[in-house]
Design a protein around this nucleic acid. Sequence first.
DNA 1: TTAATAGGTTTCCAAATGGTAACTAGTTAC
DNA 2: GTAACTAGTTACCATTTGGAAACCTATTAA
Lengths: 120, 120
Amino acid sequence: MKALKNDPPTCTENLLAMRDTLDILGGKWKLLILHYLITREKEVNTFKKIQREVLGISAKVLTKELKDLEVNMLVEREELNTKPKTVEYRITDYGRSSKDLIKQLVYWGKNHRYKMLQSK
Amino acid sequence: MKALKNDPPTCTENLLAMRDTLDILGGKWKLLILHYLITREKEVNTFKKIQREVLGISAKVLTKELKDLEVNMLVEREELNTKPKTVEYRITDYGRSSKDLIKQLVYWGKNHRYKMLQSK
DNA sequence: TTAATAGGTTTCCAAATGGTAACTAGTTAC
DNA sequence: GTAACTAGTTACCATTTGGAAACCTATTAA
């Protein structure tokens, strides 16, 4: 018996992979934060700066999201020797691997808006 | 004053586009259902069939997700003339536009698993 | 001494999400 | 008549998620 192109095992494997991605990058904020850190790579992005510029995020949620991203090696945290103490968050090489995904999300969203305008 | 490549307005626009995408396709089930309907395009996918094969989804949640997908024109619903009545759900042309996004999600998830195995 | 800034933590609360199980309605097979 | 199948709906409940506001520690400036 030869496996078909999209037989159940492959399909399940794909579904599990998608679930992994959604678990790690899903939710309201993570991809927005990654997008922010990627586009502002050349700046020093401190906790307060991120909180000010990723509109609407609270300190509590930002703390949690950054910790999650750090655990998954998508973001690096460094305490700087400043007074008052500041902490810099940087995208990692690995974090940059989400670029294509983010590009697709942005593209799809813009296209969807366009599509919805047309279909009225 | 010339705009930079990733100036704040563009950045916000991208963020909003991403939010739109996540609103429509985000959550635990929608992309899994779309993936299922895309890979099984040549079969007749009824409510019960989908419920059996998208593992773990309940009738209540499946009903809601399919309705949402229908409203956004990603899925088509058709009541067939069978006894007992069956209902077929099909991916639309527009629904197929999520293919690249899904591909990225699958790819990223598989890559992530590989990466995590390596870094131990 | 008081206020302000940075980077959080903690508490309390509300809404969204999702799950189980029971139930409905129409139809058919036994 | 009774059970089974399809396609849901409904009620109830638990978990997750996220938000607001107060609080904490350290440091500096007025």
